[in-house]
Amino acid sequence: MRELVILGTSSQAPTRTRNHNGYFLQWEQEGILFDPGEGTQRQLIHANLSAGKIHRICITHVHGDHCFGLPGVLSRMVLDGVEHPVHVHYPASGEDVVRALVFLATPGLDLHLHPHGAAGPIAPGVEVEELHHRVEAFGYRVTEPDGRTFLPDRLAAAGITGPDVGRLQREGSLGSVRLDDVSVHRPGRRFAFVMDTGLCDGAAALADGADLLVTESTFSDGDAALAARYRHLTAGQAGSLAGHGGAATLVLTHFSSRYDDVGLLAAQARATAGTATVIAASDLDRIPFPAHR
């Protein structure tokens, strides 16, 4: 099962209807929590999500709206008796902040801290790219292994059925029939997470080929000067990341509190997003992962 649960969508300051950041990705058997801002522990309750489902926590940068909920989440995991290892990934320059937040949490977890300082793999199936913000920031990409899609007509023509299909997949050939003869390459699905940043090569690399792209959309296109000053994206820029990268679904979030209605932001993103489906996230939305393309 793959599903994204939106725990919070507000930037900098929460509002009456939007909590600080928080995003939970169910990636088959692994649960990944991204950017737990204040109130994330309570939002997990509202979303009917057990903190015990969290195996990995990924922090893009150490501004408070992206990490001040960490002590509460970790403490809740201890309270709930979580025994599996929990891995926390974050920019190396935020080491002191993350350790201070961990110090505030109730001890008792099998906790592993993993600072990173450069683009590249950080865990099996997880990579980071550097973003362009006022402090060191990294976006995340989660990718499943590539696979094969069998073509039923070719299998039938080759006379391969039942358990022999699995055997062919494992061994690569069956008699004179090769795996390539009856199947095609299927790229692994990709999830990309882009938070506080201006347009940059790292954000473009994360968006490239993403099946589900989550990106900040702090400002409207009309407030582009503010976006540039604070190194954030406008809605149109968020859409362009999806459009140029060929993303299938774009989820907009991290909205400034100046926008009561984010419909305008969604419309601006759709104008530049190409064929991507655009969703303006609301707190507690549950977004299923798109099917294979």
Rank of each mutant, 00 (worst) to 15 (best):
F193T: 13
T143C: 08
I160T: 03
E216N: 06
R190Y: 11
F219Y: 15
R186E: 15
R167W: 03
F219Q: 06
F193D: 10
A205Y: 15
D201W: 05
V177G: 13
V184I: 06
D181S: 06
G209V: 00
T197Q: 01
C200H: 05
I160A: 09
E171A: 06
A157K: 10
F219N: 05
G198V: 07
S183L: 00
G188D: 09
D196A: 13
S217E: 05
A210V: 00
D196E: 06
D146T: 09
T215R: 07
L206A: 03
D153Q: 14
A192N: 14
L151H: 01
V214N: 11
V182C: 05
L179H: 15
G159R: 05
D221L: 14
S220T: 10
T197N: 14
D180V: 14
D201G: 07
L168T: 15
D153K: 06
R178Y: 07
A227I: 12
C200T: 08
A192D: 14
A205E: 12
G198A: 15
A204H: 11
D146F: 02
D180Q: 11
T218K: 02
L151N: 05
T215L: 03
T197D: 14
G139T: 01
R148Q: 15
R148Y: 12
F138I: 04
R148T: 06
P187L: 05
A158M: 03
G202E: 07
F219H: 11
T215I: 14
G188L: 02
D211G: 09
L179V: 15
E216F: 09
T149K: 06
P145N: 01
V165K: 06
G175K: 00
A192F: 04
T143E: 12
A224R: 13
R189N: 10
A157H: 00
F193A: 12
A207Q: 00
R190P: 00
V165A: 04
T143I: 06
V177S: 10
V165Y: 01
V184N: 04
T149P: 12
M195K: 12
L199Q: 05
G202N: 11
V214E: 13
S183R: 04
R154C: 02
F150P: 13
G175C: 09
R141Y: 09
F138P: 13
P163N: 06
A156F: 08
R190Q: 15
L199P: 10
V165R: 08
D180N: 05
D221M: 13
F191Q: 04
A224P: 15
A156V: 11
A227Y: 05
V182I: 07
L212G: 08
R189C: 13
G166M: 11
E171N: 13
F219G: 09
D223E: 10
D208C: 13
L213S: 08
D196N: 12
T215M: 03
G166Y: 14
D153H: 09
Y140N: 08
L174F: 01
G166R: 15
A228H: 15
V177R: 04
Q169F: 08
